[in-house]
Computed example of a mutant assay.
Amino acid sequence: MRAKIIDGKEFAERVRMQVGAHVARLKDDHGLTPGLAVVLVGEDPASEVYVRSKGKMTVEVGMESFEHKLPADTSEADLLALIDRLNNDPAVHGILVQLPLPDHLDSDLVINAINPAKDVDGFHISNVGLLGTGQKSMVPCTPLGCLMMLRDHHGSLSGMNAVVVGRSNIVGKPMAQLLLGDSCTVTIAHSRTKDLGEVCRGADILVAAVGRPEMIPGDWVRPGATVIDVGINRIPHPEKEGKTRLVGDVDFASAKEVAGAITPVPGGVGPMTIACLLANTVTACCRANGLEEPEGLTA
C-alpha cells in the first residue's frame, strides 16, 4: 500500500477561495469588509516573514489588513493599550498577536486582553473553555485546518479511533477537543506515554504534534490509517553540508508505505494555518454582525 498524499497547499488555496467569495458577498450584500489586525513586537526574522505573508493573503482575499509593528522594548502597558484600541475598533474583526513575545512581556496576560470574539488565534482562556465544553468558540487555526482536511478526506469521522501525540495548548489539546466534537474516540499521548508505538498503532487517525523530528516511524502506523503531521522541524541536510531541511514529527518515507493517507512536511498542515486564520476572521465578522457563518469554514 502507498499512501494518498494530502496536499495542504491545494486545500489551503480552496479555503482561501471560499473565504474570498464570502468576503465579496459581505461587501456586496451588507457593505462589510472583514478586518484583521496583526501585532508584531520586536524583529524576529521568522515572525516578520510570517506576518508579511499573513498581510499579503489577507489583502488577496479582499479583507482589510492592519499591521502594527512595535519595537522589542515596548512596555506591557503600551501593548495592552494598543490591544484595547483594537478591541474597540469596529473595522477590526480579528486580532492576532504574533508569538513568541519578548521575554519581558507576559504572553498569557496579553492574549487574554484580546476581546474573545476577535481572538482569531483561539488562544483566549474563554475560547479554550468554550471549545472544551462544546460551545461556539474561536478555534485555533492549526487544529481547525487539520479537522478540515480530515473531514474532506473521510466525510464523517464518527466512531473512528484518533490518537493525538502532543499535549500543547496550541495544537494537541484543542485538536483532541475537535475530534471529540466529531464523535471520534480520542486518546491524547505524548513523549512520556508508555508503549507509545502500541498506542499509535491503534489509531485510525494519527495526529503528530509533539515537536520531535521524525519521532514516529512507519511501523507505529496502523495500515490504512490517516496521518496528519503537524511537526515542523529543521534538521541538518544529509547530502548538503551546512544546509538544513524541514521534516515533520513522522518519518515520512516509512510511514507513506503503510498509511492510507498522509500530509507531507512541508506542504501539508502548514499552509492551512494562515488559510484558517482568514476563515476565522470572516467568521468573527459574521458573528459580530449577526450574520450567517460561512459554511465549511468553521468547526
Rank of each mutant, 00 (worst) to 15 (best):
I274W: 00
V19S: 00
M272I: 03
C285E: 04
V61P: 01
V269A: 02
T187H: 11
A91F: 09
N289F: 10
T263F: 00
N280H: 03
G248I: 11
G224N: 13
P100T: 12
G296V: 09
S137C: 15
G155V: 10
A255C: 12
R14N: 14
G42Y: 01
G94I: 01
F11E: 12
P100D: 08
N280G: 08
D106L: 11
N127A: 08
P140A: 03
G145H: 06
D106N: 15
V163F: 06
A46V: 13
V221Y: 04
A21H: 07
E239T: 13
A72M: 11
P71A: 14
K173R: 15
G62L: 03
T58C: 09
G197T: 06
M160P: 04
S47M: 03
D73W: 07
T33A: 06
A176H: 05
M17Y: 04
E13Q: 14
K69W: 14
L79G: 09
C286M: 10
S75R: 13
S254G: 11
P140C: 03
V39R: 00
K118D: 06
L131D: 04
R2Y: 13
S47L: 06
F11L: 15
G260R: 11
P143E: 02
A259W: 08
N233L: 09
V250I: 09
R52L: 09
F252K: 04
G270Y: 07
V186G: 01
D28F: 05
K69G: 03
G268E: 05
I228Y: 04
A288P: 10
S158W: 10
T283A: 13
P45K: 05
A261T: 10
I111R: 01
V49K: 12
E13H: 10
P71V: 12
V199D: 07
T273R: 00
S65E: 10
A279I: 07
G260D: 08
G267A: 10
A12M: 11
A275F: 01
M57E: 15
V92G: 03
D249Y: 09
L278D: 00
M138R: 07
G211D: 13
M215N: 08
